[in-house]
Each structure stands twice: as C-alpha cells, then as structure tokens.
C-alpha cells in the first residue's frame, strides 16, 4: 500500500497534465461540431476531394460527419493517439524511472518482493488511467449533449469513449514490457512517440491494404468505429487479441522483472 500511494503521488502531476490536455482537446473539437454539422454538405465535398487511399487511411467516413457519433469517431483518432502516448509513457516509466533516477537500490533493498513492487506500480498506473478516463468521459459526454441537438445513442457514445481506456491499457502493457526488456532507457518520450506513431501508421497501412493480419498489429484498429456504431458493441476477435496481448505482456514483464539484475549506476 505504501508503494502504491507513493507512486500515485509521483504520477499526480503527470496524470493531471495529460488529463487536462485530453479534456481540452475534447472541448475544442466538440465546440467545432455545430459549425461543421451545419456545413456538413460542404465538408463532405472537401473530404470527397481527398484521394480515396488517404480517406481510408485516416478512417474518415463521409456519410456520418454531420452526426455527433460520426463526428466523434473522426476526432477520436486524435484523442486515441494522445491517450496512447500518455499510457505508453506511464508504462515505460513505472519500472525504468527507478533505474534512471537511480532509486532502484533504495526500493529493492527494502523487505518487499519484486512482484509486490510491480503490482503496486501497476495499480497506481491503472488508477492514474482510470482518473484520466473518468474525467475525459465526463467532459466528452457533457460536451456532446451540449452541442448535439438531435437525439443519439448514449450507449454507442460510451462504447466509443471507453475504447480509449482499452487502447491505453494495451499501450500501458506494451510500455511496461519494453521497459523491462530494454536495459537502459534514456528518453521515455522518444520511445513512446516512436512506438505510438509507428503503430498508428501500420494501422493506416492496414486500412488501405485491407490486410487483416496487419490490422491486428495496430491497437488503433482494434476498435472499429463503424462496427461499434452498427452493432452497439465491440468486435469480439479484436477484443480477444487485445485482452490476450495485455495479459501476456504483463505476465512476461512480471517474470522478467523478478529475475532481472539491478546494476550499479
């Protein structure tokens, strides 16, 4: 419990900064909705003038841009990228910061098992992400209700929003896995930005080539918005892959971390 609280306190500023950024992005985008929805026809024309490959790659669906759900799935691309970077940063940091800031000796000579350290840190990171998601969800829902005059499915809206949490969990797990695999991490941000954008472009590539295997490589494509809007639920195959990946990465990280040598600085 003491490690959990200490970690939570250590992430406080980080959590607040990223949460406020995500909320600001949501507010900004939703504020644009009324004017976009009024000029939906013109927007469709602009988007239609884009090459089709680009449209598919970016996941722009022309038909729905005028409705709040269509619009949301469009802006959500950016929100999910921001959220992914946040989660990945967190994942890479929780274990590697002890090595980088040279505090591993302090922590690991205390009477605690390494798996307990990992569990406490993992729970603190999860708490941080839950805080982000609750505040984001509240803001997004409030903004959507504020700007959309027509009725829309709240269930679908929540499902879309919750996919942020799932994407973040995937990137958190990936970050933790990388942090126990790489011996020395100098810059967290360069690794997380590189990985997030790399996977994002793989996702874009998967969309244009319609390659199903490639699609599973990019967590951004696990939550297909047209599917969610049509079925009011997640695609089970993607969800399975996501859950399996998360469990596998976390278990592997535990195993590696508990046998890892902590070198002198």
């Amino acid at each position: 419990m003491n490690i959990f609280l200490h970690e939570l306190r250590a992430y406080r500023k980080f959590t607040m900064t990223w949460t406020l950024s995500l909320m600001a992005v949501a507010i900004l985008f939703f504020a644009m909705f009324p004017s976009i929805s009024r000029q939906a026809e013109e927007f469709k024309q602009i988007i239609e003038s884009y090459p089709e490959t680009l449209r598919v790659a970016l996941g722009l669906s022309i038909e729905n841009i005028g409705s709040i759900l269509g619009f949301y799935s469009y802006i959500f691309i950016y929100i999910s990228v921001v959220g992914a970077v946040q989660a990945m940063n967190l994942g890479i940091s929780i274990i590697s910061k002890e090595v980088r800031e040279k505090t591993a000796d302090f922590l690991l000579t205390k009477p605690v098992t390494r798996s307990k350290i990992m569990t406490s840190k993992l729970l603190a990171a999860l708490t941080s992400l839950v805080v982000t998601n609750v505040l984001f969800l509240g803001t997004a829902t409030a903004m959507a209700l504020l700007v959309e005059t027509k009725p829309f499915s709240i269930t679908v809206f929540l499902l879309l929003s919750l996919s942020l949490f799932f994407i973040q969990l995937i990137f958190l797990a990936l970050g933790i896995l990388l942090s126990v695999l790489i011996i020395k991490i100098r810059s967290v941000l360069s690794i997380s930005l590189g990985t997030v954008f790399g996977l994002f472009f793989i996702g874009a590539l998967a969309a244009t080539t319609k390659d199903d295997l490639l699609r599973y490589l990019s967590p951004f494509k696990y939550f297909n918005f047209s599917y969610i809007i049509q079925h009011s639920g997640y695609e089970s195959s993607s969800l399975t892959v996501a859950v399996c990946f998360i469990i596998l990465s976390i278990v592997t990280s535990y195993l590696i971390y508990s046998r890892k040598d902590i070198h002198t600085v």
Binding site: A10, E101, K102, T103, D105, F106, T109, T264, V265
Partner: peptide, 9 residues
C-alpha cells in the same frame, strides 16, 4: 543498507 552512491527521489 547504505549504497556507495546514494540517490533518492
């Protein structure tokens, strides 16, 4: 334990 080089938060 007192390490040779001390680093704390």
């Amino acid at each position: 334990y007192l390490p040779s080089e001390v680093f704390y938060y």
